[in-house]
Amino acid sequence: MCIAIVEIENLSFGYGAEPVLENLSLSVQRGALLGLIGPNGGGKTTLLKLVLGLLPAPSGRIRLFGQPLESFKERAKIGYVRQRALSLEQRFPVTVEEMVSLGRSPRLSRWRPWSSEDTRAVRAAMRAVEIEELRSRSVWELSGGQQQRVFLARVLAQEPELLLLDEPTTAVDPKAEAEFYMLLEKLNREHGLTVILVSHDIETIAQQVTKIACLNKRLLYYGVPEECAHPLLEELYAGKRVLHHGHGWTISPSLLLSQPSPGLRPPSPSQGEGTG
């Protein structure tokens, strides 16, 4: 049961001379639902992109499913949902079903055309995130929360074993956000999907995740959310007010937004709409 799906050893990475990640070591077991939190600019997205192979090779080692990143070929095993996957300038008519079907592309090949198995996977993915009734709607007509479900379904159609999500609920209203995270928990619990979820805000994810990693260039904490110590979070958020919240610790989002400390990139206004 305790198989490490992601193993990271002594990972360092920077854009030019600017270090973004320093000497990071972390391993994620099969079946984990890991919340990766930290301030903006703390290296969360960079870490995901390194694991996905989207950035040039860093120093240190990354192993995926037991294989070194450089020789890892089974990309379809890893699903990725990025921030704002639909860019607004691209108003191109795509139905929900067409969008979800794209998720099958990595499983197809020139010599394995579309089959009933693919149709079944697409239907199952839409069912899992409860968007079946939207299937012939244009993606553009949907709300932000529904669109995020479409992108989740797209990545589920790929039948991944590991799911990486980069602040998937940016620009989604709080209710849809809570539903989205409950859905993720269900996928993790019922389908055994390993999930790494990036968030800038511990409050929204603390109830769902089984483990928390706090990242600000270095790994400051890695363990269960309940034990994520108060002083550590204060250090992480550079002195912001931290509240005890029953299931862990909460940093007041309004303070996070209103008092960006020097060296931290302030969150964009749209990120604040849902949490403030």
Partner: peptide, 22 residues
Amino acid sequence: FLLRRELLYSTLDEETARASGI
């Protein structure tokens, strides 16, 4: 025609398409 899915995926969302191994 043969590449239509990969083409559409990389047209609509290049980064995700790349991440999924296309």
